[in-house]
Every structure is written in C-alpha cells, then in structure tokens.
C-alpha cells in the first residue's frame, strides 16, 4: 500500500540518483578540459550574432509599427518662400489635421545649441512645416500635391524612410541568420565530437552500468546535461554583448528622436537560452546515437 514512507524512500532514492548523475556530469566536464572553453566561445559567439540580429530586426519592426500610426510629413521650403504664407496654405490642404512650423532661424539655433563648434557660415537650414495627416493612406496623394508646389524644396515622410531601413535590416538579418545556422551546425559538430570522445573514454564504465541493469537514462543524462549546459552558459555569456549592442542601437535611434521601450531584450534572451540548450542537446544526442548503443 502506498504510504508517506514509501514516497519518502522513493524520493530519497531519486535524489541520490540525481546527485550521482550530476557527479558524472561534473566528471565529464572535468575530462573535457580545454574543449569546454572552445565550445563555450563558439556557442557564445553564435548566440551573440543571433541575439543581436534578432534584436535589430525586432527593434526596426517595432519602430516601423510605432510610426505607421503617426502620419507625419515634413515639408522643407525653398529659401525664397515665405513661411507665414505657406503654413496656412499647407494647413488648408485636404486630410491635414494639424500643422506646426519651425522657422529656419529657430532650427539653426537648435542645431548650434546641440553642437560644440559650429562654423561661422550662413544658416543653411530651410524653413520647415510639419503636417499631421488623418490617415497614412492619404499620405502619398498629399505628398504628390505638396511636391507640385513651386515654393517647396523637399517633402519627407519618416515612415517611408523607416520602412526602407527595416527592409535593409531584415536583409542583413536573413544573411546573418543563415551565417548563424552555419555556425550553429559547426558548434553542434564540436559538441558532438567532444562528447563522442568522452563516451569512448567512459566505454568500460558504460558497459558495466548497462550489464548491471542501470537504466539507459542514467547513462545518457550526464552527456545530455553537459551538452545543454554548454548552451545555457553560452547564452549567459552572450547576454552581455547583446545587451551592449541593443544599448548602442537604441542610443543611435534616440539621437534621431526615435525612442523604443519594448521588452524585446528579454524575449531574445529567452530565445538565446532556448536555442543554446537545443543546439547543445542535439550535439549530445548525435554523439549518443553514434556511440552509445543503449
């Protein structure tokens, strides 16, 4: 009959087996010697590349999404155009809901206050009118209309620009992720080879364990844990450079007044741990398939 005593004994037994498995894992790590370092460096490298590229892609997408709801168009006027005349005219255009002007003198002052050494040159900046449009769908038509005005030098729509940036980062990321897959396979191969050597070194122990009726899991788990541990520690090591990379990207974005407050970093960190553990575990499984016929 089941009793607390039975449960306690079974639990204590599992605990002792777990402890032995960890001791065997520790022994495996000790025997792997400097190979541990090589594996961790390659693992951390691929996860750094993977994490940084994923963050870049997510951040740029996030940025585009943020701006997709804000249909703001910047209109730069020619030097001889009058801001006082143009702003009301632009404001009256269909679909424009709000306007805000920035005279070139103010823009120049703003620029000079942000720079330490500004050369003694005439103000090169144009008068600017920022227009808010009721919907992003109406922006292309509006831009066409504004561009046809003789007083207008240039019309800029940040959303379009961001979309292009996003496409570019996506392209870089796809190439980068392909590279990561290649490096991932390389890491898997190194882990698999290291653990294969370890299995061969432990051949006698494994044979004794098998013959005396020790479960296959007891024999396999130390190798599996070792592989997964490479992935986990590799992800932890990669976390720092990935965080620095994101801080750098966000500082660049904030310079352009594009601020992001998303939780992408935590999501990517979780993904890095998951991928590291899966790559490590697959490396271990591969070596066991080849050399551990239990």
């Amino acid at each position: 009959m089941f009793s607390i005593n039975t449960f306690f004994h079974a639990f204590a037994k599992d605990l002792r087996i777990g402890q032995r498995i960890l001791i065997e894992t520790g022994g495996g790590l000790y025997r792997s010697g400097w190979m541990n370092l090589i594996i961790l460096v390659t693992m951390a490298s691929i996860l750094t590349i993977f994490g940084s590229l994923t963050l870049l892609t997510l951040d740029s997408q996030h940025l585009v999404e943020n701006w997709s709801n804000r249909a703001t168009v910047s209109v730069y006027l020619k030097n001889d155009a009058s801001l006082a005349d143009m702003e009301p005219e632009l404001r009256r255009l269909p679909h424009v809901t709000k306007s805000d002007s920035l005279p070139k003198s103010e823009a120049w002052e703003l620029y000079q206050s942000n720079q330490e050494d500004t050369p003694e040159i005439p103000n090169p900046l144009p008068d600017t009118v920022h227009l808010e449009v009721d919907s992003p769908q109406n922006v292309p038509m509006l831009i066409k209309e504004i561009e046809s005005m003789s007083e207008v030098e240039e019309v800029r729509y940040p959303y379009e620009f961001l979309k292009q940036i996003s496409q570019l980062t996506r392209g870089i990321s796809i190439f980068g992720l392909m590279f990561t897959v290649f490096l991932g396979l390389l890491t898997l191969f190194i882990i698999s080879n290291t653990l294969s050597l370890l299995i061969q070194a432990r051949r006698r122990e494994i044979e004794i364990l098998r013959m005396m009726g020790v479960s296959n899991w007891y024999i396999r788990l130390p190798f599996l844990i070792q592989g997964a541990l490479y992935g986990f520690v590799g992800a932890l090591l990669a976390f720092m450079p990935v965080t620095s990379f994101q801080m750098f990207v966000r500082s660049v974005l904030s310079f352009f007044q594009w601020n992001l407050d998303g939780q992408n970093l935590y999501f990517v960190a979780g993904l890095m741990v998951l991928i590291g553990v899966v790559v490590g575990g697959l490396g271990a499984t591969n070596s066991m398939k080849k050399y551990l016929n239990v």
Binding site: K13, E207, I208, M211, M212, G213
Partner: peptide
Amino acid sequence: GVVFQDFKLLPGHTAFDNVAYVLRALGTP
C-alpha cells in the same frame, strides 16, 4: 550478475568503489 574475462574494473578506483559503482548508480543508500 555478469563476470567478464577481462574483469572490466575501473582503473584508479579502489576495490570498494569498483563494487559499489553500480549500487550508487541505482540509488542505494
């Protein structure tokens, strides 16, 4: 119980540890 021609003892482990090896793996107190 299996006995092998080449003994299959773990080098560097004492007689006690060699005999205890499997019992430990089976979670014996």
